[in-house]
Amino acid sequence: MNKQSLIYTIVFTFAVCFVFVAILAVANDLTAEQVRQNQIVAQQRAVLNAMGISYQSDEEVLSLFEDVEQDEIDGTIVYITEKDGNRIYAMSFRGSGLWGPIVGILAMDSSLENIFGIEIISHEETPGLGGRITEDQWKEQFRDRPVPEGSIEVVRGGSTGDGQVAAITGATGTSNSMERILNNAMQRFRELLGGRDA
């Protein structure tokens, strides 16, 4: 058979594509469940982190998460848990950072006057500068931070009081974005839960 003929070329190309794509389709299908599981665990882990619930393994994440109530208000899923007799609400937030979207979880107590904690799920900030928003040192500032005025302010340097957290040195853009994103998220929280009894 002439390997340079048009018919052979078409048949060969088709066959090769078919075989490889078929294998990929099977591989994709086999792992689809695992991938979905990973995404769920990632989301749940973030919620638990924001709520300050510690865990050891992925299995523990899944079992701990069963105690977290989920309530859909106005199309937004709100996660609710009891901790030391307080109700804690958590919600995912999303906004534009310096280079791309920042996605995370914000947890607040029932009065909506204290941030309970935050967790960043994904971001595209500069590694080592704005990327430091994922470091515990920065996130821990939000743990039990009172926000009496209902908004948070990111301040440069120095000590921080109520409604304030320290900016990341050298990353003013990202810090300002976080301030804006979190304030929007808190606003949304109030819209969703405002009418409820604490």
């Binding site: 340079q4 070329t9 990929l24």
Partner: peptide, 25 residues
């Protein structure tokens, strides 16, 4: 087995195949 005319295309296809395998794993 590869016809000369589509040599490059087939190579790209093969490479893409393995890259996607890596990505899936």
């Amino acid at each position: 087995l590869i016809p000369r005319k589509v040599r490059m295309m087939v190579q790209v296809l093969i490479i893409a195949f393995y890259v996607i395998i890596v990505d899936i794993v």
